[in-house]
Amino acid sequence: MTGIHDMGGRREEFGPVDKSQHELEDWERLADAVNYVLNAKGHKTTDEMRRAIESLREYREMSYYERWAAAAEALVVEKGLLTQEEIDERAAALERRWESG
C-alpha cells in the first residue's frame, strides 16, 4: 500500500500544474515559524513532522499549511507539551473573539 503522500508517478490522478500563487496569510507564516522554532529547540524533528503529516486522514483535502498546522498540533499533544482540551478551548475562544470583533 502506497502512502497518501508518496505521489511520484501517480500522474493519472492529477492534471496540469496550476502555476497560480496565493498570498500567504498570517496564520500560514505562523504555522511555518512555530514548526521551525519547535524543531530548532529540539522539541520535535523534521521526520516526526513528516510522519505526522503523512498520518493526516484529510491529507488530500487540506492545504499545505493546514497540514503543517495540524501536524504541529498533533505532535505537541503527542509529546505532552499541550493537551487537546486546552487547544480546543483556546481555539474556540479565539474564534468567538474574532467573530464578535
Binding site: 498570517d26 492545504s63 493546514e66 505537541v76
Partner: peptide, 22 residues
C-alpha cells in the same frame, strides 16, 4: 483568515508561549 486551522495554530502558539516552551 480563511481556514479553521488559523485559530488552531494561534491557540497552539499562544499556549506554548504561556508555558515557556517558546
Amino acid at each position: 483568515e480563511t481556514s479553521p486551522w488559523a485559530a488552531r495554530i494561534r491557540a497552539v502558539e499562544e499556549l506554548l508561549a504561556e508555558k515557556g516552551i517558546l
